[in-house]
Design a protein around this nucleic acid. Structure first.
Lengths: 114, 114
DNA sequence: TTCATATGTCACCCGACAGTGACATGTCAA
DNA sequence: TTGACATGTCACTGTCGGGTGACATATGAA
């Protein structure tokens, strides 16, 4: 299951605009048209391509109702990349900080770029 | 401070190889040469470019010792994007799941594309 | 049926980015 | 001083991603 890497999710979230879309959808589900209105600087085509990327990453659940398309946020992938990746590393913050301090002190102190 | 968006960090982490570098550095600091050895499929130049990106995002702290360059992971940006972004949304998982369920049930049940 | 609305698809443009080899610089040791 | 080693920099390439307009399809209402 789940090719274990979640590269799609990272790629999807790497774009500022798409994170904005996720932001909007975090409040409530939107139709594609509503989303287009929410991003006046983008063409409808651009918004739809972002939605495609988000959907492919599993961040979006799409349901159709007549000629309307409802886009609903799915936070599961967010949870996943956090659990699998960010959390373990950020948890070691103190340890890493200590490691770094130790490292820097034990070695060169001549540098430090401006 | 910190243009508040952390786009650099997201962009830096969007690349699978760079996440691999972060992985390696999570264990201990490496010199650039050691990192190059750790990624046999990449040229030295490619590895250095990845390091540049990571450093620009603040994920890397670079110290120089003679002709050696030590690359140390800085987890602070990770912590930051998590705190500011992933955590609040992922925390609402249950609520969002409920919202979705509600939404789907209250509307169309005719569709679902193969 | 007819027409406006909402969405889907296509072809194309352009800049960003990952990757490379060649060459330059700096540092340590013999 | 000389040479090997570690790193820095440059010019170039191909691909991918975000953006667009034009056109096609589907649905609801008059």
């Amino acid at each position: 299951m789940k090719r274990s890497d979640d590269d799609d999710v990272w790629k999807a979230l790497s774009d500022r605009t798409r994170r904005g879309v996720v932001d909007v959808l975090a409040e409530r589900a939107h139709t594609t048209g509503e989303l287009v209105d929410a991003f006046p600087d983008l063409s409808r085509t651009a918004v739809m391509k972002h939605l495609d990327v988000l959907e492919a990453a599993g961040l979006l659940i799409v349901t159709r109702e007549g000629r309307l398309r409802w886009n609903t946020l799915n936070v599961a992938p967010l949870q996943r990349i956090f659990d699998a990746w960010v959390s373990p590393r950020a948890a070691g913050l103190a340890a890493a900080g200590h490691r770094l301090k130790q490292h820097v002190e034990s070695r060169s102190r001549k540098k430090g770029r401006s």
